[in-house]
Write a protein that binds this DNA or RNA. Structure first.
Lengths: 340, 340
DNA sequence: CGCAAGCTTGCATAGCTAGTCATGCGCGAT
DNA sequence: ATCGCGCATGACTAGCTATGCAAGCTTGCG
């Protein structure tokens, strides 16, 4: 194997000093004479030397690596969360190790890899942590922070929007704008966020005495479009639709306009969840729930800092308040809400 | 500092064997008796032990870490490339280290960090490699693979679509479908992909004797929308628009329909570049150029494998053929092409 | 029963950095 | 002149795993 990087010993030899002197040159506050520092830096520059973190990991038992588990990048909300996360982690001296999980490669399969790189923590932006993998990570004493997934509330720390409250607000809003027959496009049953949005919406609709028809859309555009067509094949054609994420809501709008020849918002109101960039595009102008991604990332980092000291994070749940963004897709005169 | 992970020595002590025996248990093909293996695995299970790659990195001078540099995740094309890349890297035994670069944090700032983790290679999915940082990486002998960026063709390996050819095909197509006054929405001058698309398009339009007006859109939806409005403030209102990426093309369609009250494709043809998911949504149905992301990732990995052996990749350029996807946004009868 | 061959096991070590400890030097104070 | 102090420097070591080497054991065969 060819040696790629120069070591502090190489630099020391070239500079005619000891390895300690090299190390001290890069350690702020260490005692090095100007003369020695100059010689070391000259030699380091010649060899392209940068101190390695690898031996330090062995000595301190801290890698400053954080595993970021992804697997649903089709949703732009998660790409923006990812980008925000990476930027913040980096700014605070962590390094994100990216791990992909999907049907071919389950979370359980990558746990040994994570452990072998001695990551300090795992952040999952997906709801597909299996019970088994959580137990494995627990045994390895790796703190786990789950994003928008509260299923394992007693084992891991979760950071999420207040999905139930947000969905209730959407129900209120749709009914206030005159909807009397609601349609709900659900996500995936595996997703606790999706389940919470469904629960909040149906609960509030029930309180308001408004019926809700439900179809699953799998969190994707095509799923939302197909689910909308199915809603209109049923006995109760809805006049207000809430999709558990924006992608499905955009599919719903296209189904209504293109497939069913209906107008939005004139014939049917539509609301989504996430506030992805395309939600505000002129063709859609979608009413949606803003998830405060920067705030969520902040909270996750706060947990990370405390978890870094201990061997495990104190399990719990952090909920970030949502904001209802009202746009053209529900733009109709306000009707009085009739509480049943 | 609290010790988080068990070491092979810990396992050896518990199992009543030597550290070598533990190591050999996890090394396929090594000579270990069934009895010893059983004891080791039992002890390892109890302690939650996984072999560490960290000392191995020191011994072999190979980290199997690949730095993935991102910074434009607003474009869904890059999220899909990222996801594909991570999945493939992982399947082949690499681990992606994610690095974010933006205005606050230039590439040069993160080079020391990359070096300190002893990454085996750097993959940049962005065109913002500075000349200085390429030189730094060259001195550190870290191979660099640039995605869709050929500016540093003589220093790094680049993998990209055939942007020039694709843009020529788009020009042909728009003119064949009857456009006689073309508009081009350019990306960023820093992007070589954008420059190539512009060059190919204007060159072919020139050959066909069709005039082209140009406005910059910065690769973003809002930029594309504003650029389109500016195109129509000029002396030559275009009847065919090519945007250097899909996001700007979608902005163009919305500008035409919502801001300018025109019809697509009846009044103006629109084509984009990337084939992001929203390009095929019913509201847009955008003609675009498919960049074969899986193929591009394949090629990048091939380079990576050869670069892993050497200390540096042989500079060069790999070009992947593009595919023109014709959809409704240019759906008009074919007119005969008049070569000037 | 003796010996060789093969399998198994433990010991020792490389690889790199940060920090501890001891040493040496210069200089001011006594 | 001597002592002590502060600074600078080098030697040494911890931390963990894979592997070469030597030694011990078993087994089969003569």
């Amino acid at each position: 194997m060819i040696k790629r990087y120069a070591s502090s010993t190489d630099v020391a030899r070239l500079a005619g000093v000891s390895q300690s002197a090299v190390s001290r040159t890069y350690r702020p506050g260490a005692s090095v004479s100007e003369e020695t520092r100059r010689k070391v830096l000259a030699a380091a520059d010649e060899l392209g030397y940068r101190p390695s973190r690898i031996p330090q990991i062995m000595l301190t038992h801290r890698s400053h690596l954080v595993a970021l588990v992804i697997g649903g990048m089709y949703n732009p909300f998660y790409s923006s969360v990812l980008e925000a996360f990476v930027a913040r982690l980096q700014a605070e001296g962590w390094q994100p190790l990216l791990v992909h999980v999907d049907n071919d490669c389950a979370f359980d399969d990558v746990v040994p890899t994570l452990a072998s790189y001695r990551v300090d923590a795992v952040v999952s932006a997906l709801a597909i942590l299996s019970d088994d993998s959580v137990r494995q990570l627990e045994q390895l004493r790796i703190p786990v922070i789950a994003f928008n997934a509260s299923s394992f509330g007693d084992r891991v720390v979760s950071v999420s929007s207040d999905n139930v409250l947000a969905a209730r607000l959407v129900a209120d809003h749709l009914v206030a704008r005159g909807a009397r027959r609601l349609g709900l496009i659900a996500g995936l049953v595996e997703s606790s966020a999706g389940r919470e949005r469904q629960a909040g919406f149906t609960a509030r609709a029930g309180e308001l005495g408004v019926p809700v028809a439900i179809q699953a859309g799998g969190f994707r555009y095509e799923g939302g479009r197909a689910a909308t067509r199915r809603l209109f094949e049923g006995p109760m054609a809805p006049d207000g639709i809430f999709a558990a994420n924006d992608l499905m809501a955009l599919g719903a709008i296209d189904a209504l306009r293109v497939d069913l020849g209906l107008r939005v918002p004139d014939d049917v109101l539509v609301a989504g969840f996430d506030d992805i960039p395309s939600a505000s595009w002129a063709a859609y102008d979608l009413t949606t729930v803003l998830q405060d991604a920067p705030r969520m990332v902040d909270e996750a980092l706060r947990v990370l800092h405390s978890a870094a000291e201990l061997t495990t994070a104190r399990p719990g749940r952090i909920v970030v308040p949502p904001v209802l963004i009202i746009r053209g897709s529900t733009d109709r005169p306000v009707a009085p809400v009739q509480v049943a």
